[in-house]
Nucleic acid binder design. Structure first.
Lengths: 213, 213
DNA sequence: CATTGACCTGGGCGGTTGTCCAAGTCAAGT
DNA sequence: ACTTGACTTGGACAACCGCCCAGGTCAATG
């Protein structure tokens, strides 16, 4: 096998761990399985990571980062907020149903983190990421729909994450993507009732908007 | 140790498994740990259960049954539906936050079931139970508040379960019970907007109500 | 009292796990 | 060319896992 610096090897191993765990579950992500997936002999893993836990933490960090970067910029602007929400929810749901293994792995990581002290930070970091992402989406949606939220976006973000999490879990169990999407869209129309249109330009002070739009 | 018929021993072992898994996680519920918890030697477990999986299935069945029997009858009647919902949600949330280990175990069982074919039915059964329970609660609430639901309770039940699940998971992670309860009560006021008061007796045909009320 | 059979014991078996380590390999610097 | 040190190898280790089984115990039955 070809040699490479430890930093690069670490990335490769994290990728391999992500592949194994997404496909076969977090329990199947043994040191041996990850090494085999990466095409690397057993010792390499403990040469690059002190622990198996350190590898799992790196994997969790990677999956959290990956979820956060989702396309914020392809939300259409200049449309009614109901339409904007519907489009955003549709895109979000498509990206969820397209990565079933990763979604399931996220829940496995959450429960594992809550049980094992050595993974203590994982779940909290995951949720912080989801909340800030949801908040950013809400603010982008507000600007795109030219509305102001009646409830602080920080509070709303927690609702959104809870509802999306709940529907994702239900979908993983019953495999009924259409019913879940219908429910989510219903939640979207409810969200739309929590907005008021921004009429005058004088309202800009309420919700600070970067000049670069 | 005192002897007992296998049926009774099975119940005791299921109880022990539930105790171990709730306290230390589903991975810690090994055959040895369950036997030790029950104060029984190793072989007894395989004398009462064919598999470890059969023991876990029995444990999952027990926890599902236990969640379903929650007090449906202590919902106050003759009050505005908003008040009824608030009371019901408060009671539900208290029973959730009072059993942290069991809640976490439920999520662990769900993910395990989705990964391992030998536990295939567990998650589905769990969700069927939750949905029907939620539907029953909704109908009781409707009768107690003297209102009719604008959306079929079967559909609404799925929403309720998703939202409660999502908030429970968030609470397990950030341990902020007050924020979660506030969010749930907000969801309750939204639910109240999906009802219309039952005015005339002629409306009884729409929503069949048993004579015994 | 003798016997039967349900129930219990505790050690052993093969397999998998995380971790470690002595030895080997190879590109880069002198 | 040779030395150095980063990187790789593959086997060994103890601990734990689910499962099995030959044998022991004891209440109930004849």
């Amino acid at each position: 096998m070809n040699r490479m610096p430890v930093a690069e090897r670490r990335e490769q191993l994290v990728e391999a761990a992500l592949a194994v765990a997404s496909r076969d579950g977090i329990e199947a992500a043994t040191v041996r399985a990850v090494a085999a997936e990466a095409g690397v002999s057993l010792g390499v893993v403990h040469y690059c990571f002190q622990d198996k836990d350190e590898l799992l933490r790196a994997m969790a960090h990677a999956i959290t980062e990956r979820n956060a970067v989702q396309g914020l910029d392809q939300i259409p602007a200049g449309l009614p907020v109901e339409t904007v929400l519907e489009a955003a929810i549709g895109a979000l749901w498509a990206s969820i149903t397209g990565t079933r293994g990763s979604q399931l792995l996220s829940y496995e990581l959450t429960t594992s983190s809550l049980r094992h002290p050595e993974l203590n930070q994982v779940a909290a970091e995951q949720y912080r990421g989801q909340w800030t992402t949801a908040q950013q989406v809400l603010e982008v949606v507000g600007r795109a729909g030219n509305v102001r939220w009646l409830v602080p976006t920080e509070e709303l973000a927690r609702v959104v994450v809870a509802v999306v999490d709940g529907y994702s879990l239900a979908w993983l169990v019953d495999d009924n993507a259409e019913a879940a999407l219908r429910g989510l869209q219903g939640f979207g129309t409810y969200l739309a009732t929590l907005t008021v249109p921004v009429e005058g330009l004088s309202d800009d002070a309420v919700l600070p908007v970067p000049a670069g739009a």
